[in-house]
């Protein structure tokens, strides 16, 4: 579904990604972790072309992301993305947030879009909030709406960029529950997160990054059982202490 082949990226002289190679199979859940500044958010933003990269190739469903001939907006409309800070559109009601891109991008009628949006809103347990505005919801609720908004585009895969990092601890689980549900429904997912409990529960593979490199790319059991690299061992030792 997603292939990442020898991808490197620089901000000026500073190299943020260094020869990253990995992939996500259809139906797989891949968790990307690593210390801050390791390039994991940058890597996931390269997958749908929100960040350009200078070297290597990324394909999504066989379509080359870095190629100048690719219709990136069209490709992005098939790839759902959830952000750290939710990024709902504050001036639109929840229903309007869900319907906007369906109408403007997929050319669905307003009624179809609202119906599809509300069905997904119900799935994340927020059907009662349909007329509210993002500023009237809690962080956890906003993130669940953001997931419903991405799903309403009927994506072929989902990208999550630290979806729980900006949440109060008590709201993290309501978002993770939705993501676990999504994973068990067979959605292809690439998830940048520090939530190792989530990784243990649903990930097929775990990728560990440091200094722009993929240091460890292992099945879940291998990663938590016996990580090869010392850096990953240290990282795990630190975050699993708590």
């Amino acid at each position: 579904m997603i292939t990442i082949d020898n991808v490197s990226k620089w901000y000026g002289a500073f190299q943020v990604l260094d020869g990253c190679t990995t992939g996500v199979q259809k139906g797989d859940v891949v968790v990307v972790c690593g210390p801050s500044g390791s390039g994991k958010s940058t890597l996931i933003k390269c997958v749908n072309g929100l960040e350009p990269f200078q070297q290597g190739d990324i394909t999504v469903d066989g379509i080359p992301v870095g190629s100048p001939g690719t219709d990136l907006p069209k490709l992005r409309s098939r790839v759902g993305m959830v952000f750290q800070h939710f990024e709902l559109f504050p001036h639109l009601s929840i229903t309007q947030n869900l319907a906007l891109a369906q109408v403007k991008v997929l050319k669905r009628t307003r009624d179809e879009a609202v119906e599809r949006g509300l069905k997904l809103l119900d799935r994340v347990g927020l059907a009662a909030q349909r007329e509210k505005f993002p500023g009237q919801l809690s962080g956890g609720q906003q993130q669940r709406v953001a997931i419903a908004r991405a799903l309403s585009m009927d994506p072929i895969c989902m990208l999550f960029d630290e979806p729980t990092s900006a949440l109060d601890p008590e709201m993290i689980n309501e978002v993770l529950d939705v993501m676990v549900q999504l994973a068990s429904d067979g959605m292809t997912m690439m998830v940048v997160t520090h939530e190792m409990g989530f990784a243990r529960k649903v990930a097929h593979r775990v990728i560990f990054m440091d200094h722009g490199r993929i240091v460890e790319d292992a099945t879940k059991d291998d990663f938590f059982g016996k990580p090869h690299s010392e850096r990953a061992q240290q990282f795990l030792a630190k975050i699993l202490q708590h």
Binding site: P73, R76, H85, E87, H91, A101, K104, V105
Partner: peptide, 26 residues
């Protein structure tokens, strides 16, 4: 926030649509 533009783009909106429906209203 820069994320507003990215969120619009991630949904498949084209640049003029991102301005028209996401950035300029706010």
């Amino acid at each position: 926030p820069q994320g507003q533009r990215l969120a619009g783009m991630a949904l498949g909106l084209r640049e003029p649509q991102v301005y028209r429906y996401v950035l300029l209203p706010m």
